[in-house]
């Protein structure tokens, strides 16, 4: 039986009068890439923000690596966060720091007794693995959107997480860069043995990177399964229109 790394049951979250998540159930298994699809504002990002404790659910449980996130003390939550890599939609690179300093920042604060040589080695390895060794001394403002995404992923990988969360990894990128990012997501899984949740509304990204899809509509998952299972027999018109729009079918 496959090991569950994330188990969500009956998750609810609202902002004022707006109910965003209305009893969401979801499992993520070790080593799999799960893609969460949904319209803008459907609560996809809210889901993964609850997972890392940036937001708190109103009801339901969020069990990550055997720990219920909402009941953890700040210290325990920080320990759990070290096992989760979060790649932000706009990369969220610290714009007053160089690429090297961006990568160094989480490392020196969370891993003690590292020598300068070990830090440099780890940074160079990661920049190599995301294909940007030449950017080490550049500022984030000097990087393109795709490069920023890659550095953002490298920064999360520096702490060797078990789970990767990608928030709209291909948003605002051209098709060729999107393909590069999709390949990077697959490479990260192969090389670092991570389990991932990819939040997107880009079906090409979903098809390439996802083992399973989950479509979030009206605060609940309306369809779940492999790409073919979800879109070949889609009963919900909105799920169908998702496919039709992305693959330009009328």
């Amino acid at each position: 039986m496959r090991e569950k790394v994330v188990e969500i049951r009956g998750l609810e979250k609202s902002f004022g009068d707006l109910d965003v998540l209305k009893g969401v159930d979801l499992d993520l298994y070790r080593g799999e890439n799960l893609v969460v699809l949904g319209k803008s504002g459907s609560g996809k990002s809210v889901l993964i923000k609850i997972m890392v404790g940036l937001l708190k659910q109103d009801a339901g449980t969020m069990n990550v690596l055997g720990q219920e996130v909402s009941t953890l003390s700040p210290k325990e939550l920080n320990k759990l966060r070290l096992k989760i890599g979060f790649s932000f939609q706009n990369s969220a690179l610290y714009d007053s720091m160089t690429v090297r300093e961006n990568l160094e920042f989480p490392l020196v604060r969370n891993v003690k007794n590292l020598t300068r040589g070990e830090i440099n080695k780890r940074i160079e390895e990661l920049l190599d693995s995301v294909g940007l060794p030449q950017s080490i001394n550049q500022m984030p403002s000097e990087l393109s959107g795709g490069q920023k995404k890659r550095i953002g992923v490298a920064r999360t990988l520096i702490l060797k997480p078990e789970i990767m969360l990608y928030d709209e990894p291909t948003a605002g990128l051209d098709p060729i860069t999107c393909m590069d990012i999709n390949n990077l997501i697959l490479e990260v899984r192969e090389r670092y043995k991570t389990s991932s949740i990819v939040i997107t509304h880009d079906l090409a990204c979903a098809k390439v990177t996802g083992d399973r899809m989950a479509v979030l509509l009206d605060g609940q998952f309306k369809a779940m399964g492999t790409f073919e299972e979800v879109f070949s027999h889609a009963e919900d018109q909105r799920v169908k229109s998702f496919y039709d729009y992305n693959f330009i079918e009328s």
């Binding site: 989760i84 932000f88 969220a92 989480p106």
Partner: peptide, 11 residues
Amino acid sequence: EQIDAMEVSAT
């Protein structure tokens, strides 16, 4: 979201 990024990296 740089502040969120700091928070999720346990800083």
